[in-house]
Design a protein around this nucleic acid. Structure first.
Length: 887
RNA sequence: GCCGGGGUGGCGAAACCGGUAGACGCAACGGACUUAAAAUCCGUUGGCCGUAAGGCCGUGCGGGUUCGAGUCCCGCCCCCGGCACCA
């Protein structure tokens, strides 16, 4: 142990030690029941580690270390989400082959991870782009095909013009590409889908079991996305035909107010329209408008056309016109609605535009003292409505149903429709099937061939993997580069042996990440994606950590995949992840100037900007170092290349060391919060490490001779008792904080303990055996508790304290605490008079109520406040406070 | 619009079940050590009044419950995230 703490030297030493001793290798061991699967979302191998990675993996690593020190068998693996767009972009721009580019990046990033000292079991590393991995993507696809869960159809898809590929609904949420942000267009393309909708109800229902373990906002986002809606189907007979139009409604109680049936322009019934040429023209216009990219949130004006058809309301027998309109979506519900202008905002707007009648059938009511109070004015048909009335109320002008409450009517009318054979209660979902075809090269090929004779033929399981060719032409234009590779495309039909063409689309990379953490359990298996028994030991994942940006996409897909794996007997549970933690982004200030194009911004790296701040930390003046001219200060944004506000972790490591960088990102903010990057803060982390290090250095010799246990240490001085109390109290707090991943407060507690140690007024040289015992107890606890956050420094200090073999193999254990010692001997109890703190009294920690009362009332300051007043009562909360109430 | 999460010093943030608001850290200021600087150590730091003792105010705003409210209830305002012609 050196006198001073040298991060670089220490970190190198212990990284070598860990690698050579296999310190983090974990194996299935059925005799060890305490096992823990700690997982962070696997990174895309972009080539460079950024601060977001540092944060994500520091959080997970801290937990993995904590659990190991508690005696758990911990699986903490790492791999690469290595298929995907950037590799292909590199190929287009720089002519490097995606595989070479990816392998190089992995190589480089693995080195950076190791330099951070993360405790991964590298033997289990996987990469999605390697055939021994994607072979199983293909295997899963075939299983889904067998079970009718994979199918191909032509459908309007989300098309990213920037990347010329299809996106799933999840990836084009909000009308923009999740990756590049380009506005998404609609195109008709034939592609493969997975029937995630078959699992809609389970995906929704099983979220109940995740309450508490998953963040509320993620569950909410998934619920919104699945979008369950309960209502009813109602069939409207189309007059003079034998057809029926089925509508979906959540407000069947308003059906007597229906003044039209409105269908989407793609609805089959428009073929029966006497005006079908006009309708077709209108439909073409609507489709064209839809195909055009639109800004998110922007709504089209409602437009429609009367088809000339009439539909019969099965409840009232009334005939209403059938319209086709742009505001009715073909993909949701039945693609047809009953239009009730009086009680639906959209129908109201539509009716206003085309002067359709508005008929009120729900009367506004209020509840006062258990009584229903009617508002007759709300059903006055002669008064124009300013907007639709969409609340529940009481049915009026609704035949025999008049007088019923909406709540009742929605149930009973659906049942009535079912009995009459013209409808039924119904549930719909917003969730659509998962479109997985990508017109790309760098992904797992979809294992299917097309044969003129036999049609679509799956590649037999034994012929997997269908491997990607080594080379292709990357032009960035037209179809998938795979289509241009003859030896890939030309294949034999597995059925008839004749010439056939291979599918040239590849799979969505989200398939790779849907099951990868099962593969970690058994990464070399060449008979199955993973062995059921081996995986069963580790899974489900105990704690999953990643960015909230995957709240819907990845986390919904992996839940779906798990349910499918359960259905084919690979796993025996419903949900893959017990606890989920979504960490916040690392954000930093941005600086920019307006570019040549209007609205264009040219960003400058904060390191190149000279900033003058006022006393509140606000930027007063910002100038570019190179030219001295002012730059505009932008908001805090996620560190990114485009905002040019990234901090390179390598610079942090070089200046402060990996330990200080890790400690800082965990201390600076709660893990769920966004972390505002401030370089200055990292100094504090390094200072803390140095401080503890210097204590250890100073005490390491004397402490080696301390008595083995407290009983033989003799009498403890008041000072030593105080230190022991602080130590045990801190162990308790830190343990609880670690359990809840509250690293920021855990670090604060440890800092307090180190401050308390600095106040320990005994010198190592003049210390009594009992003092040495107390000092060792504190230092050892502190070192072990620091280990998950700053493992290199902790190893060095642990060794300095005379332990060989490293923390894990050398037998370090997470410290335990003594409840008695953790409790204070004496307490300072605040005494309030009428709720305001007026004095504090020192009392014994377990002073009884009457002792407390006596001490409080006897206090001089309290007496001054009570003087001349009448004491009404005295509230005593033992161990907390006393409140004297006077009048 | 609907759903979810928030609003506390100059800043990042603490505060278990209603019980001393602001722990811990950053920044700032003052001091010690030093020829000097760095490093380190000690101290001050929510606002206002006061020489001080001390007092008053203070957790987005307005009410309420309570001996006591950052925390619970009612009504608002604002911010962040998700969904959004979803019938």
């Amino acid at each position: 142990m050196d006198e001073k703490y040298f991060p670089e030297k220490t970190e190198e030493k212990w990284q070598r030690f860990w690698a050579e001793s296999g310190a983090f290798a974990a194996d299935r061991d059925p005799s060890r029941e305490k096992r823990f699967y700690c997982l962070e979302m696997l990174p895309y191998p972009s080539g460079f580690l950024h601060m977001g990675h540092v944060r994500n993996y520091s959080i997970g690593d801290a937990l993995a270390w904590f659990k190991r020190l508690q005696g758990f068998n911990v699986l903490h693996p790492m791999g690469w989400d290595s298929f995907g767009q950037p590799a292909e972009q590199a190929a287009i721009r720089r002519g490097v082959m995606p595989r070479d580019w990816t392998e190089q990046n992995i190589e480089h990033m693995r080195g950076q991870f190791k330099r951070m000292g993360f405790s991964f079991d590298w033997r289990r590393e996987i990469a999605a782009h390697r055939p021994d991995y994607y072979r199983w993507d293909q295997w899963f696809f075939l299983k889904m095909l067998e079970r009718g869960l994979a199918y191909k159809k032509v459908s309007p898809v989300n098309w990213c013009p920037q990347e010329s590929t299809v996106l799933s609904n999840e990836q084009s949420s909000g009308g923009v590409c999740w990756r590049c942000g380009a506005a998404v267009e609609k195109r008709d393309i034939e592609q493969w889908f997975l029937r995630i909708t078959n699992y809609a109800e389970q995906l929704l229902e099983d979220m109940r079991g995740l309450e508490g373990g998953w963040p509320e906002r993620v569950l909410t986002m998934q619920r919104n996305w699945i979008g369950k809606s309960e209502g009813a189907y109602v069939d409207f007979r189309v007059k003079d035909t034998d057809e029926r139009v089925r509508v979906f409604t959540t407000r069947i109680d308003t059906i007597y107010g229906a003044t039209a049936v409105v269908v989407s322009v793609d609805h089959p019934v428009v073929a029966r329209s006497p005006l079908k040429e006009d309708v077709a023209r209108f439909a073409a216009r609507v489709r064209a408008a839809r195909a055009a990219a639109r800004a998110p949130g922007e709504e089209e004006e409602k437009e429609g056309i009367n088809t000339g058809l009439f539909a019969v309301n099965p409840f009232s027998g009334e005939q209403v016109p059938v319209w086709a309109a742009n505001y009715v979506l073909a993909e949701y519900g039945t693609g047809a609605v009953m239009s009730v202008p009086a009680h639906d905002e959209r129908d109201f707007e539509f009716a206003q535009r085309y002067s359709l009648p508005v008929r009120r059938v729900i009367e506004r009511i209020s509840h006062e003292q258990e009584q229903i109070v009617h508002d007759p004015s709300s059903q006055d048909q002669s008064v124009a409505m300013p907007h639709a009335f969409t609340d529940y109320g009481i049915l009026v002008n609704s035949g025999d149903w008049s007088g019923k409450l909406s709540e009742q009517a929605v149930v009973e009318m659906a049942e009535h429709a079912a009995r009459g054979g013209f409808g039924e209660p119904a549930t719909t979902y917003r969730l659509r099937d998962w479109g997985i075809s990508r017109q790309r090269f760098w992904g797992a090929p979809i294992p299917v061939v097309y044969c003129d004779g036999c049609g679509t033929v799956p590649v037999p399981e034994e012929d997997l993997p269908v491997t990607l060719p080594d080379r292709a032409e990357f032009t960035g234009a037209g179809q998938s580069p795979l289509a241009g590779v003859a030896e890939f495309v030309n294949a034999r039909c597995p059925k008839c042996g004749g010439a056939a063409r291979r599918e040239t689309d590849t799979m969505d990379t989200f398939i790779d990440s849907s099951w990868y953490f099962f593969r970690y359990c058994d990464p070399e298996n060449d008979k199955a994606p993973f062995d059921k028994e081996v995986a069963e030991y580790w899974t489900p994942v105990d704690q999953y950590i990643g960015g909230v940006e995957h709240a819907v996409m990845h986390l919904l897909y992996t839940r779906f995949w798990t349910k499918f794996m359960r259905d084919i007997g690979l796993v025996s549970f419903d949900e893959p992840v017990k606890k989920l933690m979504t960490q916040g982004m690392v954000v930093a200030e941005t600086f920019y100037r307006e570019g040549e194009e209007p609205g264009q911004k040219v960003y400058f790296n904060p390191a190149d900007v000279d900033v003058v701040r006022d006393e509140r930390g606000r930027v007063r003046e910002a100038t570019l170092a190179s030219d001295g001219l002012p730059v505009t200060v932008g908001p805090f944004e996620k560190m990114s290349k485009s905002a040019n506000n990234g901090v390179d972790p390598r610079d942090m490591i070089a200046a402060y060391g990996a330990d200080a960088a890790r400690l800082f990102v965990l201390f600076a903010a709660p893990v769920e919060n966004d972390l505002r990057w401030q370089e200055a803060g990292i100094d504090g982390a390094l200072r803390f490490l140095r401080r503890v290090y210097s204590f250890v250095y100073r005490w390491r010799g004397p402490v080696a001779g301390a008595p083995a246990d407290a009983a033989s240490a003799g009498e403890f001085s008041a000072d030593a008792r105080r230190l022991r109390h602080e130590t045990h109290r801190t162990i308790k707090r830190v343990t609880e904080d670690f359990e809840g991943m509250r690293y920021n407060t855990a670090v604060a507690a440890m800092m307090e303990l180190s401050n308390a140690f600095a106040d320990f007024r005994v010198t190592p040289e003049g210390a009594a055996p009992s003092d040495l015992f107390a000092a060792r107890e504190t230092l050892e606890a502190l070192v072990v508790m620091i280990a998950p956050l700053a493992p290199h420094a902790a190893e060095e200090m642990w060794e300095g304290l005379g332990h060989a073999g490293g923390l894990l193999a050398g037998g370090a254990r997470w410290p335990s605490y003594d409840e008695q010692l953790a409790r204070k001997e004496e307490l300072e109890i605040p005494v309030q008079v009428n709720g305001k703190v007026r004095a504090r009294v020192m009392v014994n920690a377990d002073a009884a109520e009457d002792e407390l009362r006596a001490a409080a009332v006897a206090d001089e300051k309290v007496r001054a406040w009570v003087e001349g007043k009448q004491v009404v009562k005295v509230v005593v909360v033992p161990g907390r406070l006393v409140n004297v109430v006077v009048r």
